[in-house]
Design a protein around this nucleic acid. Sequence first.
DNA 1: CGCCAGGGGAGCT
DNA 2: AGCTCCCCTGGC
Length: 274
Amino acid sequence: MDMVTRTIPNFSLSQICRSGQCFRMEEKEDHTMVIIAGDRYLEARQQGEECCFYCEETEFEDFWKEYFDLENDYAVYTERINPNDAYLRQAVGYGSGIRILRQELWEMIVSFLISQQNNIVRIRRCIKNICEHYGDIHVNGRGEVYYGFPKPEVLAELQDDDLKACNLGYRSKYVVRAARSVVSGEIDLETVSRLPYCKAREALLSLYGVGEKVADCICLFALHHLQAFPVDTHIQQAMQAHYRRGFPKRRYQGFQGVIQQYIFYYELYGKMEA
DNA sequence: CGCCAGGGGAGCT
DNA sequence: AGCTCCCCTGGC
């Protein structure tokens, strides 16, 4: 099988997997990571800074390199951390392998509609369900079946409540109506993907079921607007515990989203080890 | 304008 | 048995 090997500092597949930005990435028993993005399938394995991607060189260069944001040096961000901010230094040290992926816009809209008032394990299951029901069927290099992400055209045909069968609960109609908005041209994803952060956020907010938090997640994880700073319950708790006088957003102007992700990851997992 | 119930159900304590 | 969960909508 074709494979690409790279040495990549500040990169951890398992941290990215656990960081709650992508829900179609999972670790198999043998430490191999399986990543499905849109209709693409990739297996990868990492030991320290050495990563093995099981795909052709051209596919890696043309797609996965950008997907994992490997061109960016995250030390540029982490070096700007206030040395007096012990909490942030701790958080960044703990999740130093995190990257902000560049995922597909429609996939992120649906994923974060599902994410609301939901936990990561269940979000994964919901997305697995809709992919297996409504996604195109594909076969990987070993002849194993996997499913692509359901296209808006397919989901737009459904009734409001149809996705309850996929465990989406009340979020079913958010996804179905978002699909209808895309198909009808009410929102044009090509256009949105070229808009600056504020305009993109505004356009996304017009979708039924998309509030500020979800819009910011989509901006961050699909459009790579690193100034988006999604505030969920974990971030809110961290803000109250460590930044009573307000988070120094100005200091991290333009890449608050990266900082947010370090904090989120640390709040979710870092405390358990203490 | 602000407040808050309700929505489904898994996974935790 | 209760609470929480990367919330948003709609009714008051």
